[in-house]
Simulated scan of single mutants.
Amino acid sequence: MTVIVSTEQVPSRDRPAFFADAVMQTHFRHNMNFLEGPRPFSASITTDQLGPLRINRVLSGPAHVSRTPRLLSHDPEAYVTVSLQRRGTPKMLAQGGRETSVVRPGDIIMLTSYGPYASMYTEPVEIVSLVLPRPALLVPDSDLHGLTGRVIRGDEGLARLLSPFLSRLADTAASHTQEVGEQLARNVTDLLATLCAEQLGHDRLDAETAQRTLLLRIRFFINRNLAHPGLSPESIARAHGISTRYLHKLFEDEGMTVSRWILRRRLEECRRELDRRGPRTPTVSSVARGWGFTRLPHFSRVFRAAYGMSPREWQARSGLPVPGRPLPDMPERGTAT
C-alpha cells in the first residue's frame, strides 16, 4: 500500500518539524535545517514496500541534512540506503571519510544507518531512496565501507542500467502483487551486490554469481523490449552473445521457460494499462499492440487463462485487481505474441 506524506496541508510554521518526523518514520533520525526561501518550505514522501525493501520518493525544498554520531544510538537496527538522484544537484558532504562531491541526476549513493553523514540541498531536490536491512545485502562489511558516501555516476558501467530501473521501480511499486514485489526485491539486492563488486574493481566473480548477473541482464533486456513483437529466445540470445540452448538452460534453472517469462511480463504490463482510469482510457487492442501482441484473439485467450476473465471484463470490473492464476506452459520455440 502506498503511503503519501505531504506538508501541503500543514501550516507553514509546522512544516519543518512535520517533515523531520516523516523522515524519521520512513528512513531514520536526522538533524534537519531548512533553508529559507521566497516561498514556504514544501516537501513530501511517497512510500511503498516490496518485501524487505522500502522505496521512498522524496521531494524537498532546500535543506541541510545530517546524521550525527549522537543519533546513531537511537536506531539500533542496521540499514543500507541506496539513493538515486532524480532532480537537483546536492552536495554529499561526508560518509566514510569521503570528500565533498556534487551529486547529479541519475547518480547513486550508498549510505548506512550506522555511520554519520551529511548532505546539503541548496535547491529543491527529488530523490528515490531504497532502504533495506543490512543483512539483505550480501556484501562484506569491508566492501560496503569502501563504497559508503561514494558517488556512483549514473552514466557509467552497471549504473547506466540500474539507475533508470530503480527510477521506474519507484514509480510502479504500488502496482505489483506481494509475490512479484518480493521477487523484485531479491533481484534488486542481487543487482546492488553486483554493482558493489564492479565499483570495487573485483576482477572475478564466482560462476554462480556470474550466471545470476547474466540472467538479470537478460531480464532487463526483455523488459526494455517487451513492446517489440519480434522479441524471441533467438533474438535475446544473439543480443547477449550466447547460444539459444544456454539461454533456455538459464531459465530452466529458474523453473520457467523463456517464452513463458516474456508472456507473463507482457500480460503484467497489459493488466497495468487496463487498470488505468481517466479521460483517456486505452482500448484493449491498443494495449495489446503496445506490448507486443500481434493477434488480438491470442491476447484475449492468454489473458483469460492468466486472470480468469477477458481483457474487456478486466477493464470494466470494479474494485481492486484480483491475483492472477498461474500462466499456462508456453513452448520453447516461437515468440510469445
Rank of each mutant, 00 (worst) to 15 (best):
E198M: 01
H228N: 12
A210K: 11
T189A: 08
R186N: 11
L215Q: 13
S232H: 08
H228M: 10
L200D: 03
R204S: 12
L231I: 09
A197Q: 10
R219D: 13
E198D: 05
A210H: 13
L226N: 09
A207Y: 14
L191W: 10
R224F: 10
S232K: 09
T213G: 04
A207D: 14
V188W: 04
L200W: 02
F221T: 05
A227M: 12
I218P: 02
F220Y: 15
L192S: 00
L226S: 06
H202M: 11
L216T: 06
N187V: 14
R204F: 11
T189D: 05
D206V: 11
R217T: 08
L226Q: 03
L231Y: 04
H228Y: 12
Q211I: 11
Q183N: 15
T194I: 14
G230P: 13
L192E: 02
P229Y: 10
R219Y: 05
E198F: 00
V188H: 03
L214Q: 07
A193G: 09
P233D: 08
A227H: 12
L184E: 12
T209E: 15
I222F: 10
L192H: 00
N223T: 15
R212P: 07
H228V: 07
S232M: 09
G201I: 02
R217H: 13
R212Q: 14
C196A: 10
Q183C: 15
T213F: 10
I218C: 03
T189H: 02
G201V: 01
V188N: 01
T213A: 13
D203I: 09
S232F: 04
A185Y: 01
R217C: 07
T213H: 11
L215A: 08
T189P: 06
D206Y: 07
C196P: 03
E198N: 01
T189S: 07
Q211P: 01
N225L: 04
Q199G: 01
L216S: 05
F220W: 13
Q183L: 14
F220C: 08
R186F: 06
P233K: 02
L205S: 02
L192V: 07
N187C: 15
R219A: 04
A193H: 01
V188G: 01
R217M: 10
H202W: 12
H228W: 09
L215V: 11
D206L: 08
N223R: 14
N187L: 12
T189I: 15
L200E: 05
G201F: 00
G230Q: 15
N223W: 14
L192K: 02
L205E: 02
R219G: 10
L184M: 08
R212E: 12
N223A: 15
G201N: 07
P233N: 05
G230I: 04
L191I: 12
Q211C: 04
A197W: 07
T213E: 14
A185K: 00
R224V: 09
R186H: 09
T194A: 13
H202C: 08
